[in-house]
Amino acid sequence: MNPISPVIKIHLKHKLTWIGMPWIILLSSFFINLIIAFLIGDKAGFYTGGLVSIFIYMFVAGMVTLNQTFSFSLGLSVRRKDYFFGTLTVIVMASILSAIVLSLLSYLESSVTSGWGYNLHFFSLLHSFDANSFWQFWIFFVVLINTSLSGFVISGIFIRFGWPGMYIFFLIAAILLSVITFACTYFHWWSTLFHWVADHPNMLAFDLLILSLIYAVLSYLFLRKATV
């Protein structure tokens, strides 16, 4: 038997975590925004950031899942390697599934129902992203996988290095973020940055994918040396 299949089974025992919950949260956000759009009735179009809730959820799920299942799996004689690849498979599958549904809804929103009748932009936020269906799917997929793996790798730091690791990580992260933010403000890089992102969505997606790969490799290295 494939050694990663028990790990996949562990994750899919409660499909709610990776498949149900993200959509329960996203759809609640969507319906609230739809009601708001209906109440406002602004024909100019209503843009909302509600979509971000699914990405935040995936980040949290990536973080929690390691904590919930890693030592459980090791306790049942699962190899660290198999745990990692099994979990990665589940994260990739869940991201593909959610990305497909997101792309479909985005297509329905922008091209079929013209914003669900109220010119609402919930799923389709940037025109440069919905040029074609595959591209749309790809962007969603990359962002989903990136958010879940970033949660996963942060949890990996904790599993591998404990609280000291967490302190050092957040210290470095805080310093780096402050320096970058300061530099962007000081050298007036913000607008250049945003324009670059808007003009090069493919490069952005590519960078996010590379980052996700780095997260995956780091998580693997952390887990290989993690103890229970």
Partner: peptide, 16 residues
């Protein structure tokens, strides 16, 4: 895992 029932764990055992 906090959602697991006894039955869930037993379901996994044959593959482990």
């Amino acid at each position: 895992p906090h959602l697991f029932r006894i039955a869930d764990v037993l379901d996994l055992c044959p593959s482990l």
